[in-house]
């Protein structure tokens, strides 16, 4: 029997998801043995035309990482969608928008202005901006159009499964690969990670009182948190209650609060709103003015509550309102 064909592709990403696959170390060998990799730009020299030449549905599974930020990325994932039976959104950026999704706090124009004109290290006296088409004399070169806003993969194509994490940890990737190879995948639409909250698996959870009450929001930069104390109960924003587990509490172990890269449970549409409602119930006051004082003391709530999930939020384009 022919081996199932598998594709790996990246969009607006950092390469960390590719690295996560390489981090499977010797566990990758049985996978490579069992499948035929037909696209993996970081490691193998296959081109778009190789995929175009395939029959629809010929690829068993495409793992796509990165957010969708440009016309080229959108075209490429639509092509992979046509050629694949299963598409997996791999990592926080494909699943929720991820760090590149923070760009949705600004307009495309603001981003271009900063990157090409205003950043202190930029020298661009002729005010050159990337063009969709440029005549080089000998011929034309083209660039894909940058979208006005960043999208998650499932805002562009249908997606069967999600593997969360920035980057996804090797054990979750291994489990997903095993499930695929053994044909034991769960219901379509599933997030391939434990659905318990991060708090449920947190080594600091025992220090969390029955009822947390927050009277002041503190910044990590100016606060010392003992390494066995729950961040939230010490007044530091931690997205543990609005985030699923499976990461191995990586940030917590490094004495940093969670920023939610695993995303919320699948039942929750908007991770930041979920956190906000959990957080609101922790505020230790009945007095409206005092409540306002406490909530106002959160600096950059959009960046904190949506660090990895802005494009997936109900208000995906935050630049349309004041932030």
């Amino acid at each position: 029997m022919a081996k199932p064909k598998v594709a790996f592709y990246w969009c607006a990403s950092c390469g960390g998801c590719e690295e996560a696959i390489v981090d499977l170390a010797e566990n990758i060998l049985p996978v490579v043995e069992a499948v035929d990799i037909v696209l993996w730009p970081v490691a193998l020299d296959f081109k778009r035309k190789d995929i175009e030449a395939m029959k629809d549905g010929e690829i068993a599974v495409s793992f796509i990482n990165g957010a969708i930020r440009s016309e080229e990325q959108e075209e490429m994932v639509k092509l992979l969608r046509r050629k694949s039976q299963i598409v997996i959104a791999f990592g926080s950026c494909a699943y929720l928008g991820g760090i590149p999704g923070l760009a949705n706090l600004f307009t495309r124009q603001e981003i271009l202005d900063t990157v090409y004109f205003d950043a202190p290290s930029v020298v661009n006296p002729n005010k050159i901006l990337p063009q969709l088409a440029t005549d080089m004399g000998e011929g034309e070169v083209t660039l894909p159009e940058l979208h006005e806003c960043v999208k998650t993969l499932d805002q562009v194509i249908a997606v069967e499964y999600y593997i969360p994490g920035c980057a996804p940890p090797p054990d979750l990737i291994s489990e997903a690969l095993t499930a695929i190879l053994e044909g034991k995948l769960p219901a379509v639409g599933s997030v391939l990670a434990p659905q318990k909250t991060l708090c449920d698996t947190c080594p600091r959870k025992d220090s969390k009182p029955e009822k947390i009450s927050v009277s002041e929001v503190k910044r990590m930069a100016f606060t010392q948190i003992p390494d066995d104390k729950c961040f939230l109960s010490e007044g530091v924003i931690c997205l543990g209650p609005a985030t699923i587990s499976g990461c191995g509490t990586r940030c917590i172990n490094a004495n940093m609060p969670c920023r939610g890269c695993f995303g919320p449970s699948k039942a929750v549409k908007d991770q930041g709103a979920k956190f906000l409602s959990a957080f609101a119930s922790l505020i230790d006051s009945e007095d409206e003015e005092e409540i306002k004082k406490i909530t106002d003391s959160v600096i950059d709530p959009a960046g904190l509550f949506y660090m990895f999930s802005l494009p997936s939020s109900l208000k995906a384009k935050f630049f349309e309102r004041e932030v």
Binding site: G15, S70, I99, E110, T114, C251, I299
Partner: peptide, 29 residues
């Protein structure tokens, strides 16, 4: 390079102590 994410812009306004975990996503290799 047919890609642009815009870290130069979206790091603005973020808490200083959070920038380390944002900029590590410029390149994850």
């Amino acid at each position: 390079v047919p890609e642009l994410r815009g870290f130069e812009q979206f790091c603005k306004g973020r808490l200083a102590e959070e920038v380390a975990r944002i900029t590590t996503r410029i390149c994850g290799v």
